[in-house]
């Protein structure tokens, strides 16, 4: 077998496995009919969508398979940031004090999935929304801007999330 075929098969099997896992979770019965229907559906959907789920150029497992222990840590950090930023946002809504700016910076993360998760997480942190993600270049609307220094702005907005994400994905 050529490497591309092995990679295609790996992607197909991973997608099917993930879909079947979700099916098992949401249909809590272990009857043969339920299992068979889930398996057929997972295989069909996996065959149709594995090219979308895992891009061909992500040719390493580390770029999309998370390290589970660090993923849990990251989710905890994310929830903490979510509440912290919501309190800050409530204060800004009540007082009307803000300094909205648009800042640009770059990220050190290499895989597509990790960058997507980073830009999603930035939308959670204190008053920031990712406007654009272009390769490693992020454009962010920052509601409580306190600097016009691009590198400093990047470090402040990304916070510790990027460091945590680097442990989860490549």
């Amino acid at each position: 077998m050529r490497p591309e075929h092995i990679w295609n098969l790996t992607r197909f099997l991973l997608t099917t496995g993930a879909l079947f896992g979700v099916w098992l979770l949401f249909s809590p019965s272990l009857e043969p009919f339920s299992l068979g229907a889930g398996l057929i559906g997972s295989v069909l959907l996996g065959a149709l969508t594995y090219k979308e789920f895992i891009a061909q150029h992500d040719a390493s497992l580390g770029s999309f398979m998370p390290h589970p222990q660090w993923l849990v840590v990251f989710l905890g950090v994310l929830i903490f940031y979510l509440y912290q930023s919501s309190w800050k946002m409530l204060g800004a809504i009540l007082t009307g004090r803000a300094n909205p700016r648009i800042v640009h910076f770059r990220t050190r993360l290499r895989s597509d999935l990790a960058r997507m998760v980073l830009s999603n997480s930035i939308t959670f942190t204190p008053g920031t929304i990712t406007l654009d993600l272009n390769d490693d270049h992020l454009t962010v609307h920052w509601f409580f801007c306190n600097t016009s220094h691009a590198k400093l702005a990047g470090e402040t907005v990304k916070g510790r999330m990027e460091q945590h994400l680097r442990k989860v994905w490549l």
């Binding site: 800004a92 009307g96 300094n99 909205p100 609307h141 801007c145």
Partner: peptide, 12 residues
């Protein structure tokens, strides 16, 4: 982006 009036700004 909207800029709030000067006395209401939290940054520089």
């Amino acid at each position: 982006p909207w800029r709030p009036p000067l006395q209401k700004r939290s940054g520089p």
